[in-house]
């Protein structure tokens, strides 16, 4: 394991600027998750670290040496691809042994065998070792893909949405397992996803990406409670944060530059109210079992928030909303701190 330092990376494909001035230090043993929608440049950044793409400007330093122009095979990184990328003509065992059989390593066959079996047990595919790699279910193939990275002890593990093609249940299971494995191995991981739950649960730090730029880097808690702008704020939280013009709440003592108020569930106190002091009307209640999604119409703005199923609120009820320590944003969408 090693520290990986990206500084001032730029990468364009024709006219499209995929990566713009990205700098990031991934500490030894850190699990950094890059979060962002499709096309934000997450995968490109990962490929730059792997050496599968060359940056137009900037440097990639791995373990203290400049690897910017080093080919992938000499960087000692492991990559888990989104589309599995298993060697289809090989068995699971041979897929896992492939990276270890590299002549650079000169590993003994007995050691290879031991390592393959150890990692296969870790990701729980040890009963499938003799199967053809392509004759597995999606979840099993993804385990093999992760295991093929784990058999090595590279400087850094790079994972490109490794769980995105799995069903929800399996994704949940593998997520927990991945975190367990990372803790056991103390691995340095750079992980790409558009799934906020994966980001929140796996990351030691999250990097939020938007159109090729790294907008904010911080612990999941920091990103959630202290976002730098509306874009970051809207990345995390279920239901998503509500943005309302400040004018909706005239009595509020907001910072002078603030134009927009951002309200998550915990920023809102909701009380049933008589029509005189009421400011919103419940238009819809979604029952999710343990909690309800409350849709409230506030001066023609739809506010979605969580509520206790026992609150007794129902469609048509008039409510009063009181913001509690909300987030303020200026006209450009940047955070204004109180």
């Amino acid at each position: 394991m090693a520290e990986v330092i990206l500084s001032g990376l730029h990468k364009a494909f024709g006219q499209t600027k995929a990566i713009q001035d990205v700098s990031l230090t991934i500490g030894d043993g850190e699990f950094i998750v890059l979060l962002g929608p499709t096309g934000a440049g997450k995968t490109t950044l990962l490929r730059l670290v792997a050496g599968l793409e060359q940056p137009d400007a900037g440097t990639v330093a791995i373990g203290g040496w400049d690897a910017t122009t080093t080919p992938p095979s000499d960087r000692d990184v492991a990559f888990v691809f989104q589309q599995y990328s298993l060697y289809p003509h090989l068995t699971v065992y041979e897929n896992l042994a492939f990276p270890l059989r590299s002549p650079i390593r000169a590993m003994k066959e007995a050691d290879i065998d031991a390592k393959v079996r150890e990692i296969a047990a870790l990701v729980r595919i040890d009963d499938k070792l003799n199967n053809q790699a392509t004759r597995l279910s999606g979840g099993q193939m993804q385990r093999v893909a992760i295991a093929r990275a784990l058999v090595r002890s590279p400087s850094i593990y790079l994972m490109d949405e490794p769980l995105s093609s799995l069903d929800a249940k399996l994704r949940g299971d593998l997520r927990v397992e991945l975190k367990r494995i990372q803790t056991v191995l103390g691995a340095t991981i750079l992980y790409v996803t558009h799934d906020q739950i994966e980001a929140m649960t796996l990351a030691t730090r999250i990097g939020v990406m938007d159109r090729g730029q790294l907008v904010q880097v911080g612990t999941p808690r920091e990103i959630y409670t202290d976002p730098v702008n509306m874009y970051v704020a809207s990345r995390l939280g279920m239901p998503a944060i509500n943005f309302l013009p400040l004018s909706v709440f005239p009595g509020l003592s907001a910072p002078s530059a603030a134009k927009t108020i951002g309200l998550r569930t915990e920023h809102l106190k909701i009380a049933r109210s008589d029509s005189a002091s009421a400011m919103g009307k419940v238009t819809w209640v979604e029952h999710l079992g343990d909690q309800d999604y409350l849709h409230i119409d506030v001066q023609n703005h739809d506010v979605v928030t969580l509520s206790d199923p026992d609150s007794g609120l129902k469609t048509g009820d008039m409510v009063r909303l009181t913001p509690a320590l909300p987030l303020y944003f200026d006209g450009a969408g940047n955070r204004v701190r109180a």
């Binding site: 095979s73 990559f79 060697y87 492939f98 093929r148």
Partner: peptide, 25 residues
């Protein structure tokens, strides 16, 4: 292409990629 990319990251030389990926596939 991604099979070759995976092999490259797995530190397989061009020679090894040829014999263990190109030829069998």
């Amino acid at each position: 292409d991604y099979i070759y990319e995976a092999a490259e990251v797995d530190r397989a030389s061009t020679w090894r990629q040829f014999w263990s990926i190109t030829i069998p596939m």
